[in-house]
Design a protein around this nucleic acid. Structure first.
Length: 191
DNA sequence: TAGGCCATCTGGTCCT
DNA sequence: AGGACCAGATGGCCTA
């Protein structure tokens, strides 16, 4: 069971400038003496683990940036940091809204039974996956009937399908999908 | 009331 | 350097 302790209702308050004169109970990672060690920090009323970078799959410049971040932060005033945080929050909100819009578009694109109930995100992704697989198998089934002898549908047709779609993506941008579907429709009419 | 789902905040990491 | 992306944490809402 997930922790849902509702200790204080206003625990998730907007980012506020930390009071440096107080004891470092709200200190963020990097300002503590325990830098680099596995520790938890209290931020916005909640405890958070700070050991994250090491287990990330995306490699690259990671590992050595801890000190750099700390150093950079130390140059910024608290007011500047506050402004940056708020701007960052706003960007993140916008990003998530865009993501949700995309989810909504996907919901409307896939047929499902319970029209009265909004699909959850995980349901949307799962249904979309199944829908794509179904359409693909239908298309491959149709096109296999038109293949030259000896050519297998999984190789040739799938490649043609992908090639066609990619071509539309490059040429037409956003309208590619509808055109692609139109082409598939006419394709099925022919056979 | 437990649990699922979601929005939001947050800091680390990657990319341009 | 700054924005985008990502994942963890947490509170709120809703439903069985």
């Amino acid at each position: 069971m997930k922790s849902k302790g509702k200790v204080a209702k206003s625990c998730r308050k907007p980012w506020t400038e930390p009071d440096l004169d107080r004891e470092p109970e709200n200190r963020e990672p990097g300002t503590s003496e325990q830098e680099g060690s596995e520790a938890s920090v209290r931020i916005g009323g909640s405890w958070r683990g700070v050991l994250r970078g090491g287990d990330r799959e995306r490699g690259g410049g990671g590992g050595t940036t801890h000190g750099l971040h700390r150093h950079r932060r130390s140059h910024n005033s608290n007011k500047e940091r506050n402004v940056r945080r708020l701007e960052s929050n706003e960007r993140e909100r916008q990003r998530m809204h865009k993501l949700n819009n995309a989810f909504q578009a996907l919901r409307e694109a896939i047929p499902h039974v319970k029209m009265d109930k909004k699909l959850s995100k995980i349901e949307t992704l799962t249904l979309a996956e199944n829908y794509i697989k179904s359409l693909t198998s239908i298309i491959l089934g149709i096109s296999s009937a038109r293949l030259p002898p000896g050519e297998t549908p999984t190789e040739a047709s799938a490649a043609r399908l992908l090639q066609c779609y990619q071509q539309h993506l490059e040429e037409d941008g956003d309208e590619s999908l509808s055109q692609f579907l139109t082409q598939i429709h006419s394709f099925s009419q022919e056979s």
